[in-house]
Design a protein around this nucleic acid. Structure first.
Lengths: 274, 274
DNA sequence: CCCTCAACAGAATGTATATTCCATTTTTTT
DNA sequence: AAAAAAATGGAATATACATTCTGTTGAGGG
């Protein structure tokens, strides 16, 4: 039994360190493995042994021996390390949140930490998931509109009102449909106008009603919603999907607000250029 | 053979588009699949059918049917699509951001990167700078109030309206002073009430007026503001300072929103416990 | 020059996983 | 209300994969 029998690395950093230390003194094939693995960390997470082995130009069994030599039980265990590193960016929220709920008497600062983290993750996710083409198209449509109508009720009203504020500040004609006094203002929708509709599950009926009225009149619609199965998705509109994290029953609006600001400022900039 | 037999989506964007189109008319289980898949793109890349199915709370066979319904030969083919997409955006958040930034000075994507980064920084700053004692005190005061009044106009109206929504949802008596119709509602301020006032430079006159009226009546006041020199600071109130980053002339509200959510949820939790 | 042993490649194996099939339930239609 | 159609869940099967085994090669030492 070799004296230097070693345990599996705990973290990717550990592993890369070990790779550097023992890398030089490996036999030919294993050295090939080491080099390929060190140089293609991203591929490890996705591919099968066969693929990786082919990439390193060794038979699969050599790659297996390499993994075991490095202290892993096999290829799968090594791959797990790479996958964990990657998917770390979206921590397991459902468990954390349920613990928060069961904890009950949380201190406000612990809550603040939760919301902060949720907000951070939501924004980060937004930058990954937003479709740049659609965003650009949305800006174009809104920049060309005569009047911009904005609708977002209940949980999304905050976003809608921010949009209204931003447009007002830039002197862009915009109407916030707030549902005040239960007066329907569908008749305000005119040719050449555009609508920004914001709704998350459970989808507010009044928002949908206005969006449908706008669709019927042939207005351009920019829809900010959470799921492809949203009723807004049935409309012919430019869809911007935002998946936010819920903390308890409360939706962190950080990403949606960020998107709203981007939209408004981009539209403002475009208008001024033309 | 159904007439609408469809080919496998070519890209993730294609797929999401299809999901959006047909998503609404799917049977129950398949809709669950659609929603989970749409909401967890990152997990698809790594996990097995069994894992994903468990996440969507459906049997594995349902997930298989879903994949085929969407035009894939099976789960593996769908996963392949996600893996391809993901190996491209592998680089971490910061590099992704800088690549967004360089996408053209005035492009919407560059703006999005700008706002995202500003939001992240603001939130991070908030968790460091907030005074925990004051936060706790604010929660205590609000939890003990008979009715909570909320005022925040112009740029902060979004925050105020979110607070109003949150309190309503938790059945906590709260009044949002919106300035509708220029009706002053100072007379609503009653003994045992508390006021949340939100204002940033330049400080809105109406907000100050209401805050002063509340102070005169001896109400507890929680002030969310940006600087110690704010006129709100002159009042005897619990001050929560939030320093947000400005992008151009627009204040990112991410930190303020985060603070507002924390306040409302903490108050709700406290009320229920007492 | 032969012996020994580590390194190796490819075939053989076992296991984890995807996929299909069918009996049962639920929904829709008549 | 009955019949037909669609949807569903779990068991059965097939496939893809990681892992191990075995015979062979090649290098170093006596």
């Amino acid at each position: 039994m070799p004296a230097e029998e070693i345990a599996a690395p705990k973290s990717l950093a550990d592993f890369q360190e070990r790779l550097r230390r023992v890398g030089g003194s490996l036999p030919k094939r294993l050295k090939q493995c080491a080099e390929y693995v060190a140089g293609n960390p991203d591929k490890i997470a996705f591919s099968t042994v066969a693929d990786i082995a082919a990439g390193a130009q060794v038979p699969a069994s050599a790659m297996m021996r390499f993994c075991q030599e490095m202290g892993f039980s096999g290829y799968s265990q090594m791959q797990k390390l790479y996958r964990e590193e990657y998917s770390q960016k979206w921590p397991d929220y459902s468990t954390r949140l349920s613990s928060l709920r069961n904890g009950g008497a949380e201190s406000p600062s612990a809550l603040l930490a939760e919301f902060s983290e949720a907000g951070r993750a939501s924004i980060e996710n937004l930058t990954h998931s937003i479709d740049q083409d659609k965003l650009r198209k949305a800006v174009t449509v809104l920049a060309g509109a005569r009047t911009i109508h904005i609708v977002g009720l209940r949980r999304t009203f905050a976003v809608a009102s921010y949009l209204a504020y931003a447009f007002e500040k830039m002197s862009i004609p915009a109407i916030l449909h707030a549902g005040v006094g239960n007066l329907t203002q569908h008749h305000l929708l005119g040719d050449g106008d555009a609508l920004i509709a914001i709704t998350f599950a459970p989808y507010t009926a009044d928002t949908m009603a206005l969006a449908e009225a706008a669709a019927a009149r042939g207005l351009d619609i920019v829809a900010i919603t959470d799921l492809p199965t949203s009723p807004l998705a049935a409309l012919d509109a430019i869809h911007l999907l935002v998946s936010e994290i819920d903390v308890g029953n409360f939706r962190v609006l950080a990403a949606t607000m960020t998107l709203a600001m981007t939209l408004s400022v981009a539209v403002g900039a475009r208008r001024r250029l033309v």
